[in-house]
Amino acid sequence: MPVVLVTQGPTFTQERYEEIVRRLTGGKTRLETPADWPAEGLLTHIAGEGEHGFRVVDVWESEEACRRFGDRLTPILEETGVKEELEMYSAHTFVSA
Results as ranks from 00 to 15, higher is better:
E64S: 12
E87K: 14
V6R: 12
T93Q: 09
A35E: 15
R67L: 10
V21R: 08
I46W: 01
E51M: 10
F69P: 14
T44F: 10
L42Y: 05
H45G: 08
L5V: 06
E87F: 09
G27L: 04
P38W: 14
E49K: 03
T93L: 11
L24M: 10
S62I: 01
E79I: 15
R68M: 01
A97S: 08
R23A: 11
K83L: 12
L42R: 13
F54T: 00
P75C: 13
E85W: 11
L24T: 03
T33P: 05
R67F: 07
E61H: 06
I46L: 07
R30S: 01
E19H: 08
L43C: 06
K28L: 01
L86N: 07
V82Y: 14
F54G: 05
T74Y: 15
E15A: 04
F94K: 09
E63H: 11
P34D: 04
G26A: 03
E87A: 10
E49H: 01
E79V: 15
T33K: 15
V57H: 00
V3G: 06
G70S: 12
V6S: 08
E85L: 12
I20Q: 07
K83Y: 10
Q14K: 09
V95H: 05
G48Y: 07
E63N: 10
R67I: 11
T11H: 06
V3Q: 09
E64K: 13
E15T: 04
Q8C: 14
H52M: 00
F94D: 06
F54D: 05
E63P: 05
E61R: 10
E32M: 10
S96M: 06
M88P: 05
R72S: 15
F94C: 09
G81Y: 12
S90L: 11
L24H: 09
V59P: 09
G41N: 12
V56N: 04
H92W: 02
R22L: 02
R23P: 14
G9D: 04
S62W: 03
E19C: 07
F54A: 03
F69I: 05
M88L: 07
D58P: 02
T7E: 02
H45T: 03
A47P: 05
L73T: 11
M88E: 08
V95T: 01
G53M: 00
Q8R: 14
V59E: 03
E32P: 04
E79Y: 12
M1W: 06
V59K: 04
Q8N: 13
L77G: 12
E85Y: 09
E19K: 12
T44E: 10
R55F: 00
I20F: 03
T33M: 04
A39Y: 14
L86Q: 10
I76K: 12
